[in-house]
Amino acid sequence: MKDTLEKILHMNQLEREQYMSTNGDQLLEQMTKIIGYPEDELRDKLNYRLFIELLSTNVLTNEQMAHLTIKLSGKDYLYSSIGKTEDDSVFTRSFSALWLAALLYADAQLRFLTEEQSTEILEVATPYLMKELDVRGFLGDKGWALAIGNGSELATAIVSHPSFKLHLTSKLLEGVKASFWKGSVYINDEEESFAKLIGLLISKNVAEEVLIEWVEQVFDKLEFYLVTNGYTPQYFSARTNTLHFMKQFYFLLKFTRRMPELMGAVSIFIGKWSQQ
């Protein structure tokens, strides 16, 4: 498979179009089978790279893109072995999220999905960030897992899509809040991707009071856990993740000059919890 991917990557645009016209469906089937292969070179540097090139150069047909989007949002890909934290299934979920994000961004421009299909896929994919529990980053020769970061990118693509509906906001916010409590401190800029996501929700006119209430709930959870369980490793990792995110979020609000009441609430909580 490596030889095939390398050969296609080295083709010019015309050669690639000719190849895809006769072999495209078969190639995409083979590529999805190895979407989560636990080796960095094959999965990331060859397979994912070729997918992005095919997508960005308009070589894929509308039917192929629609088929891929529907397929990758299902239980065998985005939700494959969801809930597991120490096996290689994370690569299938993480890269399905990454491919799906790219496809949703493309569909926002090309509209190869029907309205019914896009609405259903957004509904199905929205809980992913909440359900994903594997927080690992770089895994040696296997490469980057980054399921939480890629899940956040998928969530951003969902909010960016023309079929996005505001009722999905609560699940997305719950997914971000849940991500603070997954037992590890993030070190790969996940908090920046969360802030970008919430900033995009603000641009979609999510009510300021909704976000203020969410911020209060985030810190209420910290308070309740501390009172109930004390100073555990779980508490400290969640506190660190929460404060790192809130500081990113504060500066996003400050620079965009939107929602001053929300910015004030975030500032007060940062001040309070930075002392604990």
Results as ranks from 00 to 15, higher is better:
9 L>N: 07
145 A>W: 03
32 T>S: 12
192 E>T: 15
17 E>K: 14
177 K>P: 02
136 R>S: 11
33 K>S: 14
22 T>G: 03
232 T>L: 10
15 E>W: 09
127 P>F: 14
226 L>E: 09
107 D>A: 03
216 E>Y: 07
152 S>C: 10
5 L>E: 02
111 R>N: 15
232 T>W: 12
242 T>H: 02
48 Y>V: 06
150 N>W: 04
255 F>M: 15
7 K>S: 08
48 Y>L: 13
100 L>K: 05
217 Q>I: 03
113 L>R: 06
191 E>P: 04
44 D>Q: 12
46 L>Q: 13
55 L>T: 06
9 L>G: 06
265 A>G: 01
108 A>D: 10
9 L>P: 03
188 N>G: 01
6 E>T: 14
216 E>S: 09
209 E>N: 11
93 R>N: 10
128 Y>T: 10
183 G>M: 02
35 I>E: 03
165 K>M: 13
25 D>F: 08
218 V>I: 15
231 Y>D: 14
266 V>R: 01
108 A>G: 15
101 A>F: 03
212 I>S: 04
45 K>D: 10
245 F>E: 04
64 Q>I: 07
170 S>Q: 11
41 E>Q: 12
84 K>C: 02
152 S>N: 03
132 E>S: 06
63 E>M: 04
36 G>M: 00
89 S>Y: 05
212 I>N: 00
8 I>C: 02
273 W>R: 09
261 E>W: 00
79 Y>G: 08
170 S>V: 12
172 L>F: 05
209 E>A: 11
99 W>L: 05
43 R>A: 01
8 I>W: 04
189 D>S: 12
184 S>H: 09
219 F>A: 05
8 I>A: 02
35 I>C: 08
237 S>V: 13
144 W>E: 01
234 Q>D: 14
207 A>V: 11
181 W>S: 08
133 L>F: 07
138 F>Q: 10
139 L>E: 13
224 F>C: 00
234 Q>F: 13
206 V>K: 00
149 G>M: 07
141 D>P: 08
49 R>M: 07
142 K>R: 14
209 E>D: 14
103 L>C: 09
266 V>K: 01
102 A>W: 00
245 F>V: 07
243 L>I: 13
151 G>N: 06
83 G>D: 00
185 V>T: 09
118 S>C: 10
86 E>G: 13
117 Q>Y: 04
158 I>R: 00
214 W>I: 10
261 E>T: 11
158 I>Q: 01
91 F>R: 01
119 T>H: 09
110 L>T: 14
60 L>F: 05
72 L>I: 11
86 E>N: 15
101 A>M: 07
92 T>R: 15
196 K>T: 15
140 G>N: 11
209 E>H: 06
